[in-house]
């Protein structure tokens, strides 16, 4: 049975740490064609240019060749081919599959059919574990550690899958959480129960200006218009959860702001030049962590 990465909880604490230190090696020396005899299939059933380019860059840096498709436009999927048949075919051609698919659970299902390792590059609203791994790498790189950090998650905590996965992954490292969100987008009960069961402290606030000063990481997410039934409510909330430079004057020097991107107006442009801004470097870290995951799953 090949090893897959479908959910962040498929990797133990040790496997997470191993992957992060491997990513560090790749960052020091990004050109390592150790997979020049391998073929990576990158199959995107919905477009995601950012994630796809990051994966394909990672595979190319490792010397692997990349096959696949970036949307289903010209594929047999539009003729009604099942996911099962597509995966059977692709796993015959390739040594590893990177899959993005709009349905929740599709990546887990693909991993059960595939004869080669599968990496989930986003299955609907469910998981996006390589995003979480690059978030962890960014936290480790900027803080020098993962243990005992105070993480402030801001914005859409209800539907934002990146915050849910990050919460699960960080739970290995004795964190403290602050959840900053409007009532409509609060952290779901099941995740709060999860933390309570692990004795991990958390608190909640609606007020973004509270809790900025003692945070080590501020993890911003996009508040999307589609989430609101009342457009006036959206307009009110949207401006309320926007971070600007003047709010950061009392922050800890080590504090970094992360954001899975693309950003709209939840971080004002005047923050970009601040030492606290890390979201662009964070995206770049994605290539190294994906190199680490690909090579780890292929046993190199």
């Amino acid at each position: 049975m090949p090893k897959h990465l479908i959910s962040i909880h498929d990797f133990s604490r040790d496997e997470i740490l191993e992957t992060l230190s491997l990513a560090r090696e790749f960052e020091k020396n990004p050109r390592q064609p150790i997979l020049s005899d391998k073929i990576v299939a990158s199959i995107f059933f919905e477009p995601s240019t950012r994630t796809r380019l990051s994966f394909e860059t990672a595979a190319n840096r490792l010397g692997a060749r990349v096959i696949g498709f970036s949307d289903i436009g010209n594929t047999s999927v539009t003729k009604g081919e099942t996911l099962k048949d597509t995966i059977k075919m692709v796993s015959n051609y390739s040594d590893l599959i990177v899959i993005r698919h709009p349905l929740d659970g599709s990546a887990r299902y693909a991993s059960e059919i595939s004869s080669v390792p599968v990496i989930n590059a986003g299955d609907g609203a469910n998981q996006h574990p390589t995003q979480t791994m690059l978030d962890l790498y960014s936290i480790l790189k900027t803080q020098g550690k993962l243990e005992n950090l105070k993480i402030n998650m801001v914005g859409d905590l209800k539907y934002g899958r990146t915050v849910h996965s990050l919460l699960q992954a960080m739970s290995h490292f004795n964190p403290e959480f602050l959840f900053t969100s409007p009532d409509e987008l609060k952290m779901p009960v099941e995740y709060k129960e999860y933390l309570t069961n692990l004795n991990i402290p958390f608190s909640e606030t609606k007020n973004l200006s509270k809790g900025l000063d003692d945070s080590d990481i501020i993890y911003m997410t996009r508040v999307q218009r589609e989430r609101f039934t009342d457009p006036i409510e959206y307009e009110r909330v949207k401006n309320f959860y926007s971070l600007n430079l003047s709010m950061l004057s009392g922050c800890k020097p080590n504090m970094k702001i992360l954001h899975p991107l693309p950003r709209v107006n939840e971080i004002s442009q005047d923050v970009d030049a601040s030492d606290h801004a890390y979201y662009f470097e964070q995206a770049e870290n994605g290539v190294y962590t994906r190199m680490a995951i690909i090579s780890k799953l292929l046993g190199k």
């Binding site: 099942t82 099962k84 349905l103 659970g105 599709s106 299902y109 609907g124 469910n126």
Partner: peptide
Amino acid sequence: HQVVETLFTTIVESPDFKLLCHYCEK
């Protein structure tokens, strides 16, 4: 959406049981 047999883990027992989907994790 596709012909996939469902699979759940029981995370809370009866009477007010909760079943966790192996695929979508909901």
